[in-house]
Nucleic acid binder design. Structure first.
Lengths: 112, 112
DNA sequence: TTCTTATTTTACCGATTAGCTAATTAGCCA
DNA sequence: TGGCTAATTAGCTAATCGGTAAAATAAGAA
């Protein structure tokens, strides 16, 4: 699978996004990451594997502990991809603006 | 499933992303969208259903034809979500800059 | 060596997905 | 009505996913 598909797939799960959000604050061990969730450790471990395969998270070892670290580069690739479509939502806002202006104009006109 | 998960899931497929890219150029019918792919029409129809459930695409009918239209609002939500992480990739680039500066400095120093 | 902690691996389950073919719906035209 | 075109639905298979429990691995502590 290509990098972008891997990344989007990894992001398409609320648990994995919550893990990323937690890692945005600071690095953490697998146990620390698992703590807020009502999920068994192997489940978290699997989610972390998906995030690592998408290059969204990296791990370093210190004794038995794995320290997980957010890798923002893959997120930047998502940002770059979606940024190419910005003209489209700007256009639709332009259309909305035009629509609202029309309403406003019509409102004024009706008062005349 | 929440909106963001729906959207990321829809984007985690190269065919669906290609459909969006095509729709970024102009609206198109289902047949027109299917044309570049080596896939049967029902398969494309299913992909479009996923895109519609993620609010990434809308359809209007004209006789038998369905005209598909890119809805950029859902993409903007992705952009907004990922934008919250921008400090992290900026930080890592800062660290890279610092690293490269160090190398450059070391290089100059070694020449003295 | 044995114990304990931290984490992963393996094997399994039920649900979902991407692809197919065949059949069906929907709307146009003759 | 019947035939053509556009698209969807139904039903199938093989693969994948998210979760589990139980076993295995790895490393520090006693």
């Amino acid at each position: 699978m290509d990098q972008l598909s891997l990344t989007f797939h990894a992001l398409a799960d609320p648990t994995r996004r919550a893990i990323l959000m937690r890692l945005a604050e600071s690095d953490a061990t697998v146990n620390e990451l698992a703590e807020p969730f009502d999920l068994r450790l192997p489940t978290i471990s699997k989610h972390l594997k998906v995030l690592q395969e998408a290059s969204l998270v990296s791990q370093t070892r210190e004794a038995q502990r794995r320290h997980c670290h957010l890798e923002a580069k893959a997120l930047k690739e998502v940002a770059d991809w979606v940024w190419n479509y910005r003209t489209h939502w700007e256009e639709s806002f332009d259309r909305l603006d035009a629509f609202l202006s029309d309403i406003a104009a019509a409102g004024k006109a009706s008062k005349n």
